[in-house]
């Protein structure tokens, strides 16, 4: 049994360690590329849990230092907000 299959890296989108390793091996060695292909980090948690894990995996498999791996951007809103709540914000 392949244990990597059961290692969930991104909880929001159910992306496994196996998928991430596969992409790194294919030459996708930035968090952004892996995110764009797998959606890891695009879920409601904004990649808080998986970003570090992916960076560490890239560093481990490529021999790069963490600081050499570009950080993805941190987009607002940091916490999901209901559209209806936003719509009621006073316009100023």
């Amino acid at each position: 049994m392949n244990k990597e299959k059961d290692v969930i890296i991104c909880r929001c989108e159910d992306v496994t360690l196996e998928e991430i390793r596969e992409l790194i091996k294919r030459g996708y060695t930035t968090v952004d590329e892996i995110k764009r292909i797998t959606r890891a980090g695009m879920g409601p948690c904004q990649g808080r849990t998986c970003r570090d894990l992916i960076i560490r995996e890239i560093a481990r498999l490529t021999g790069k230092r963490v600081e050499e791996i570009p950080m993805p951007t941190f987009r607002p809103p940091i916490k999901p907000i209901k559209l209806g709540v936003l719509a009621e914000s006073e316009d100023d």
Binding site: Q46, P76, P77, K82, L83
Partner: peptide, 11 residues
């Protein structure tokens, strides 16, 4: 009816 839907990201 979808006013409870949440925005997760803007860019």
């Amino acid at each position: 009816r979808l006013s409870g839907l949440r925005v997760v990201r803007q860019w």
